[in-house]
């Protein structure tokens, strides 16, 4: 095993996601402490990969890797990790990283931590467990380890640079895959763009049902705001996917983010913690959102919303 830290970067439409830079920055810090190298791993085709401040960048380029394919990307990363044997492999706890991190852990029989928000030089990892209500500090028991890290945990700037990438062919055969990319679908147009709004009234599962959406809409209208939501509301079909804030939704940065019935799971925080003014109303006084919001109230969201509508 080397003392290197591998970062499995991620990209879409030719652009790397912020989390990739965040992880490269953290990898540099850890690799320096261990006397190893921070290695950015780029899997994909048709992307300029000389953008990281890594000690080195490996770019596995093959036409079959043009679009994210969990099977193909997983096999490539597995082969590379087996061959190079880094001390730590970092993924984002994202829609792509989640397809590979735990899978790779089980394939290789190495330790894996998820929901990681910090990593110490002794490899102790802090994980936002149980919807962010508890922090688990865990340490891998020897050998290589895998860390799936929450976006927004480390600064982006530390990972930005221009290290020249070494391009390599795929280390595995990609001609007999069971999984084939078919097409990308863009969100249906016609709805408001929540990322361009200055005020959002954002609702969580506490809203209880579709029949209660009217109250949220009324409050939003009075405030000149638009209604957005956390994932459970969208998964339940109460609002369209275009209104979802968070990891699998959109990142927003409004002047006002008024949260009704949202507990503040790590996936949601990723999408809104840069809002200028965050006000949270939740019945659970221990809801993690109160560690992030600027103002909070332990109260019934319906009573508060109704009273606000009357006052506005």
């Amino acid at each position: 095993m080397s003392n290197d830290v591998f970062v499995i970067t991620e990209h879409m439409d030719g652009k790397f996601s912020d989390v990739s830079f965040e992880l490269v920055g953290k990898a540099k810090e850890l690799a320096k402490a261990w006397g190893g190298q921070a290695v950015a791993v780029v899997v994909g085709s048709g992307i300029a990969s000389n953008v990281f401040a890594s000690d080195s960048t490996i770019h596995i380029d093959d036409a079959a890797l043009s679009h994210f394919n969990p099977e193909a990307y997983g096999k490539v990363v597995e082969a590379l990790v087996k061959e190079r044997s880094p001390r730590l492999v970092m993924f984002g706890w994202t829609v792509t990283g989640m397809d590979m991190a735990a899978w790779l852990s089980a394939r290789l029989g190495v330790a894996c931590a998820a929901y990681v928000k910090n990593i110490g030089a002794d490899l102790t990892m802090s994980c936002a467990a149980y919807g962010g209500k508890l922090t688990a500090e865990v340490a891998p028991e020897g050998g290589m380890a895998i860390a799936a890290c929450l976006a927004g945990s480390f600064p982006v700037e530390a990972g930005q640079g221009s290290t020249a990438a070494v391009t390599m062919a795929s280390p595995v055969d990609l001609n007999s895959l069971k999984m084939k990319f078919v097409e990308a679908t863009k969100p249906a147009g016609g709805d408001v763009d929540i990322t361009s709004q200055t005020k959002l009234v954002s609702i969580g599962r506490g809203i209880g049902g579709k029949e209660n959406m009217e109250l949220a809409e009324e409050l939003a209208q009075k405030l000149g705001a638009v209604v957005s939501a956390s994932r459970p509301v969208v998964d339940a079909g109460w609002l369209p996917r275009t209104r979802q804030v968070g990891k699998s939704g959109l990142k927003v940065k409004p002047k006002l983010y008024l949260m009704l019935g949202i507990s503040g799971a790590p996936e949601h925080l990723e999408g809104m913690q840069s809002a200028e003014l965050i006000i949270a109303v939740n019945t659970d006084k221990k809801a993690p959102i109160f560690n992030v919001a600027h103002y909070g109230a332990t109260a019934d969201l319906f009573e508060v919303a109704e009273a606000m509508v009357e006052l506005l």
């Binding site: 069971k178 084939k180 679908t185 979802q244 939704g249």
Partner: peptide, 15 residues
């Protein structure tokens, strides 16, 4: 169909 951030989706055919 697999979801990506921002409402983007990708479709895969899987044996």
């Amino acid at each position: 169909s697999k979801e990506f951030p921002g409402g983007v989706g990708m479709k895969y055919s899987i044996t």
